[in-house]
């Protein structure tokens, strides 16, 4: 089922396939223990930047070492979010390469608490927290 993007958003970058994945760094302060003993990211890990920029991610290209995204952040983890889920929430993705990160992608859309909670629940770990590796 195709879910229309939220009103007023820029065009979605359809060159990024629905089965592509986005990586998002998760600091250890955002690890949340579940009743079954597993750890998942807090929904607070999927907010837009405080300065108003949309949520930053890195496109998980096949063959790229995900640890390269965590460099300098020992003890953190890396969440894997499907682009299809992002679109299902009415958000869009846009490439915004930077000199430091050519695979930089932003996720644009209203990050309501409920939608962030769904991302937190349905994402997986590209790199789990250190205690689970």
């Amino acid at each position: 089922m195709v879910v229309p993007a939220e009103a007023g958003l820029p065009p979605d970058d359809l060159s990024i396939a629905g089965d592509a994945v986005l990586w998002r760094r998760v600091p250890d302060l955002h690890f949340v223990a579940q009743a079954d003993g597993t750890i998942r990211p807090s929904s607070a890990a999927f907010e837009d930047d405080p300065d108003g920029d949309p949520m930053s991610t890195v496109l998980g290209r096949p063959g790229r070492d995900p640890f390269s995204v965590l460099l300098g952040n020992d003890g953190w983890a890396l969440a894997r979010v499907g682009v299809a889920l992002v679109r299902e929430l009415g958000w869009i993705v846009q490439r915004r390469p930077t000199p430091e990160e050519p695979d930089h992608v932003v996720v644009i859309g209203n990050k309501t608490h409920g939608k962030r909670k769904r991302i937190a629940r349905e994402c997986s770990w590209a790199i789990p927290p250190p205690s689970r590796r």
Partner: peptide, 21 residues
């Protein structure tokens, strides 16, 4: 609860048990 800071300077409290979030 689990207590986490938010990027905008807030705090979030979370309870996740099998039947309740």
């Amino acid at each position: 609860p689990t207590v986490v800071p938010t990027a905008r300077g807030g705090i979030q409290l979370e309870w996740h048990i099998p039947s309740i979030d």
